[in-house]
């Protein structure tokens, strides 16, 4: 499990171009050729160079650009994808697929190299789209429970 700071990320690297090939072989069958969705969720919103920004409609939440941290996509794809063989991608392949998705969502350039150092530094377009900004427990007694 990889946290927001990416401390647990392993060595490895990947680019969107490498990711496009892996995505076509391992992901496109369910998620569509360019991540537009199919039998499984849509992963792309916005387009290269033009990220989608808040607000997101409920049906748009599956796009990689919705996530507050860049590490979330890496962590989930690494542990749980592809659905027919979870955990079978190498770290290089996971970096590459994430680079491809971030490129298609307009978050990074096609030439950007993702690795343990560069990935956590990516600024996500919806970073401030969540309330409360820092989750708390026990809850703030001033807030009603429906909040």
């Amino acid at each position: 499990m990889v946290g927001p700071e990416g401390k647990e990320l392993p060595p490895g690297r990947g680019t969107a171009k490498e990711g496009a090939e892996i995505f076509a072989k391992r992901c496109a069958l369910c998620h569509g050729r360019n991540g537009e969705g199919g039998s499984a969720q849509r992963l792309v919103l916005g387009s290269p160079g033009i990220p989608h920004r808040s607000p997101f409609k409920d049906t748009e939440k599956s796009a990689t650009s919705y996530y507050p941290y860049p590490t979330i996509a890496w962590d989930y794809i690494n542990r749980a994808m592809p659905a027919n063989k979870p955990g079978s991608l190498t770290p290089d392949e996971v970096y590459a697929v994430v680079a491809f998705l971030f490129y298609r969502n307009g978050i990074i350039q096609e030439s950007d190299v993702l690795d343990a150092k560069s990935l956590p530094k990516i600024e996500m377009p919806n970073r401030n789209g969540f309330v409360p900004a820092v989750p708390v427990w026990p809850p703030d007694p001033k807030k009603p429970s429906w909040f």
Binding site: M1, V2, G3, P4, P55, F56, K57, D58, K61, S62, Y66, Y67, P68, Y69, I72, A73, D75, Y76, A80, F130, V134, P135
Partner: peptide, 15 residues
Amino acid sequence: QPYMTWNESMNHSIP
């Protein structure tokens, strides 16, 4: 800190 993993970020939050 909260890890905000995929399920909780994507599936369990509502605009």
